[in-house]
Nucleic acid binder design. Sequence first.
DNA 1: AAGGCGTCCCTAAACGTTTAGCAATAAACG
DNA 2: CGTTTATTGCTAAACGTTTAGGGACGCCTT
Lengths: 363, 363
Amino acid sequence: MPKKPTLVDVSAASGLSVYTVSRALNNAGGVSKASREAVLRTAREMGYVPNRAAQQLRRNTSASVTVMTASTSNYYYIDMMSGVQQVLRASGRSAVVADLATDGVYSAEAENAIVQDIIQARTAGVVSTLILSLDNVRLLESWGIPVVFVDSSPPKGVRDAASVTTDNYAASLAVGNHLGEHGYEDWALLMYPSRWSTRAERQRGITAAAANTGARLTVIECENDPDSAARALSAHLAANGSKPPRAVIAGNNPLLRGALDVLHGHGIRVPDEVALVAFDEFPWAPFVNPPMTVLNEDSKHIGEIAATILTRLIDEQAETAGNGEATPRYRPEDRREVGSNLIIRRSCGCVPLNLEQSDKGAL
Amino acid sequence: MPKKPTLVDVSAASGLSVYTVSRALNNAGGVSKASREAVLRTAREMGYVPNRAAQQLRRNTSASVTVMTASTSNYYYIDMMSGVQQVLRASGRSAVVADLATDGVYSAEAENAIVQDIIQARTAGVVSTLILSLDNVRLLESWGIPVVFVDSSPPKGVRDAASVTTDNYAASLAVGNHLGEHGYEDWALLMYPSRWSTRAERQRGITAAAANTGARLTVIECENDPDSAARALSAHLAANGSKPPRAVIAGNNPLLRGALDVLHGHGIRVPDEVALVAFDEFPWAPFVNPPMTVLNEDSKHIGEIAATILTRLIDEQAETAGNGEATPRYRPEDRREVGSNLIIRRSCGCVPLNLEQSDKGAL
DNA sequence: AAGGCGTCCCTAAACGTTTAGCAATAAACG
DNA sequence: CGTTTATTGCTAAACGTTTAGGGACGCCTT
C-alpha cells in the first residue's frame, strides 16, 4: 500500500500553505475562490482524505454520539435509533449504538466498560435507555459529556438531567382499564427487572387500574428475555394448579414471546381462555396469532426529541468549554413526556370490525 | 469543567517520564513493577483517561470495524452483529453498524458517503452485507482496509475477496422441493432488487426446483420493504383475476410482512388456499398466524466467521503496512459457505406433530 | 501622500499520544 | 576490579490536523 497523501502533501502539490489548504477544505473564510478551487482539485486528484483522528485531536471535539441500550433485539430500540440518526445527521453528527447485553443479561462491569469507552473516545454526547449508576453519571458529567435518558430516568441523586419518557403511568392505566372493561378479574403482569426504569411506572399504572376495576393482580418477575419469561410464567401456571389468570400483561416484546410460547404450548386459547396484551408495538404484531393488542410508544419520535435535546446540550457544552464554566445547566423543558396509544387488535378479546384497515396502518 | 489530566500531567505528578507512564498504562515492557504500580495509582487518582484520537493518530491504527447494512429492521442483521461483536471483542476491537437505508431505499450517494466516512476514520476493516460498487471496493483496497462480504458477493471485476455466504442455491432448492412435495404447481416468488446479491442464487434455486417438480413460477419484483411488497403482490392477484398462486415464497422478512398483509386482507386462508414460505428465520416466526415455515440461515454463526476472517486480514494488513508491500492476498479459505436448514412449521401446509417442541427450539 | 481597512495567505505552535535512540545503573562474570 | 549484559528510564521527535499571530498587498478615503 503506497503512502497516503496528507494535508502537507496537498499543500506542496498545490503550492499553497497548509493553512490555505485546511481552510479551503473546510469551507472556511479567508481563501480566494481561485485558491479554493485549486486546492479542491489537487486534493481530489491526489485522493486525499482527511484523517479524523488528527482532526479530533486538534479540534478537541467529536461528532459522534453513543446510544446505550440493552437488548437490541427489541424492536423498540431500532425505531428510536432511526429517529436519533435522522436528527443528528442534520448537524453533521452520527450515532453509534453500544449494546450492554445482547442476551438480556446485564452487568455493572459492562456498563462501566462502555462508559470508559465513551470517555476515551471523547464522545460528544450520550443517549441512554438504561438507568446508569450514579458514579457513571457523575463521571460523564465531569468530562462534560451530556446525557439524555430515554424511557428511563436518571439514577436517584442526580438533581437535574435531560430525559424523554412516555407517560408510562397513564399508558399502563389505559392498558389496565381496557382489561377492566372486558370484565377480566384475575391479571398477571409479567415484568422485567427494575433496572429498566420504565418498570416502576408501568407496574404502578397496572396496579392502579387493577384497584380501580377491582381485579386481582399478581406480578411475575423475570429477566429480560423470552426464556426467562417462559420459565417464570410456566412456574406460575403450575403453582396455581390449572387455574390460569384471565389476562396476562407482558411487560415488553421479549417477554411477550415467552408468554406466547407457554400459552401456545399449553394449548391455551388466546384470548378466549386467557387474554393477552403487551407493551410496545412491533412490526409483527398484526400477524401474530392472535393479532396483538399492544401499547404503542412512538419510539421514533422519542428518538428525535432526545437527539434534538442532546444536540442543544452539546452545542452549549462546546460554547462554555473553554472558559472553565460549569456544564450547561439543564432546563425544565429538557424533561419531556410524550404520549402513547393503545392499539387494539384481537388478543385482548376485542373483535375489531375494521381489522384490515387497522393492520394496514400498523404495517 | 476543569481541565482534564493528560499523560504529561500524570508524568509530572508521578515523577516519572511520559515514556514510563505510557508503557506502564499499556502493560508494555521496560517498566519496573514498582514504577508501574506508582503510575497506575496516580493515573487512577487523577482520573486520567487516555485520549483515543491521540492514540489513533500516533499509532496509526484503529480498533473499530464497520458493518455495512441496509434495512436494519431485518432481524437477520441483528443476529449477525452479535456474532461479529463477540469475535471482535476477543481481540479488543469493536464494531459499529452503518445503515445505508433504514427504510429500504438505497442510494449510491449514501454508499459513497459511508465509504468516505470509513476512510476518514481509518477504520480497521469492513463487513458488508451489500454488493459495493467496484470503485468503492478499489478505494477501500487502496487504503488498505480489508472487506469481508457476508451473504453478498463482491462486485464483478474484483478478482479475489473474502466472503462468507450461505449456499443460497442449495437452500432455495430445498425450499422449492418442499413445495413440490406438497404437490403445489403454481408458485409466486416475491423478490427484492438484485442489489442484494443473495437474490440471484435464491431465484436460481427456486427456478430450478420449479423445473424439477414441474411447477409454474412467476417472479414478482418489488423494493425491499413491506409496503412495496404488498402493492406488488396485490397487483399480481388483481391481474390474475381471482386465481391466486397456490404457493407464495417471500424473499425475506420485510417482504413476508407485505405478503401476510395482503393475504390476510383478502381473507385468503394460509396454507389451505395459499401456502406461504419465506427466507430468513426470525423470532416471531413460531407465533405468526400460521406459524411460518422458513429457511434458517445461522446468521450469528455467519457473523462469527466473517469477524474471524476479518480479524486475520486486519492483523496481516498491520504487519505488511510499513514495508510498502501489497495488501495481503486473500486466501482460498477466505471464501466460506455455510449451511442452512428449512424450519418446517405450518404455513407450508405441513402439520408437524411436535409443534410445541420445534417452537421451543426456535424461540 | 498618508493612513486605514480588507482580503488573502504564511509560519509555527499547538493537540495528546507513542517510540526510536540513548544513557544510567545494577547485576553477572571472568 | 574491569568488562559485559540486562534492566529501567529519559529526551525528543514524530503522527496529521487546526489556528493564533502576523505580514503583504491593494483599494478606498481624506
